[in-house]
């Protein structure tokens, strides 16, 4: 695949105009119709490691701005494995050239198989090598989702790949870059879009000691839970789907910093606790917990024999 240059694109627009039966005078209009759209966007290279693509799918659930507006007004999305039209070597050329030129933000989805680098490859290259060279040339690194932010499920106890978070990997490799961690399994679209909008308009948002944006992760789910009054009055749910506070079912809202209970998910439709399920702490640092620590129990711990 030949490299696409501006000159080639001008030629392409002329060809397109001819194909579409437009007059020659339309060509400069097509090629030079600059408006505010092209300016002020964040060049982004998006790489996936040990991931499920759930954070990408979650991002597509963003409403106002929706995915199209995010792509046209906020991001210059150089490469994204799930969305890019470029495939095979055409895709790898974009990644390689972008890394050569630098000046992008690197968004990473998924954790890094530090203990078994062969567990993830792309473009005939180990993901660990690819991530290291992409991070070195990045202006900043955004670790989106619990896998990238803290290791997540691929990094759970007994995992066979020695998977670690992106910041842990960068530290191991001695790569120093500004890092923003956006945990959550998946990350809420607003959390990522909010960070991107902030970076585009005002720079990196205020972060806490764990490099999480304060605007989304400064409060415990329990403290802003619609069932907090139930907790205060000691009205506890006895099993799933019950009314009352899920504290005795092992709800991890008291240990999890996130704003799900105020923000809700899927355009304000619902969230775990409103749907009759305890919080499993998917945005917590130690998600998905130790093998011996259940994500939740079905029976109130007050009743367990």
């Amino acid at each position: 695949m030949k490299e696409i240059t501006r000159r080639k694109f001008l030629k392409l627009s002329a060809k397109l105009a001819a194909m579409m039966g437009l007059s020659a005078s339309a060509v400069p209009k097509i090629a030079e119709a600059l408006d505010e759209i092209a300016s002020g966007t964040l060049p982004v290279l998006w790489l996936q490691g040990l991931s499920c693509s759930g954070c990408s799918v979650s991002l597509m659930n963003s409403e106002d701005p929706g995915p199209l507006r995010i792509l046209t007004r906020y991001l210059s999305l150089l490469f994204h494995s799930t969305l890019s039209t470029a495939t095979g070597h055409t895709g790898m050329e974009i990644i390689n050239r972008s890394i050569d030129l630098g000046g992008y933000s690197l968004i990473v989805e998924g954790s890094v198989p530090l203990g078994m680098p062969e567990a993830c490859r792309m473009g005939e290259e180990l993901f660990t090598d690819q991530l290291a060279r992409a991070a070195m040339k990045a202006d900043a690194v955004i670790a989106v989702g619990s896998c990238a932010a803290s290791g997540g499920i691929p990094g759970a106890e007994n995992n066979p790949t020695g998977a670690v978070s992106v910041p842990a990997f960068l530290q191991e490799k001695g790569i120093q870059k500004p890092v923003i961690r956006i945990p959550g399994c998946p990350a809420h679209p607003d959390w990522l879009v909010g960070v991107i909008a902030h970076v585009v308009k005002m720079g990196i948002p205020p972060l806490d000691a764990e490099h999480r944006p304060k605007m989304f992760f400064s409060r415990l789910i329990h403290d802003i839970c619609p069932r907090f009054a139930d907790y205060e009055r000691e009205r506890f749910a006895k099993t799933f789907s019950d009314e009352g506070c899920f504290f005795k079912l092992g709800c991890l809202g008291p240990l999890t910093h996130a704003d799900c209970s105020l923000r809700l998910w899927n355009g304000g439709t619902n969230f775990c606790i409103n749907a009759g399920s305890p919080c499993i702490g998917c945005a917590a640092e130690d998600f998905p917990q130790a093998v011996s620590f259940p994500m939740h129990t079905k029976k109130s711990s007050g009743e367990v024999e």
Binding site: L12, A31, L34, A38, S76, F79, A86
Partner: peptide
């Protein structure tokens, strides 16, 4: 197409 972007209209182009 009119910008200086190295990959204009990414992620839709090139292909």
């Amino acid at each position: 197409l009119a910008s200086d972007a190295i990959y204009p209209a990414a992620p839709f182009l090139p292909r």
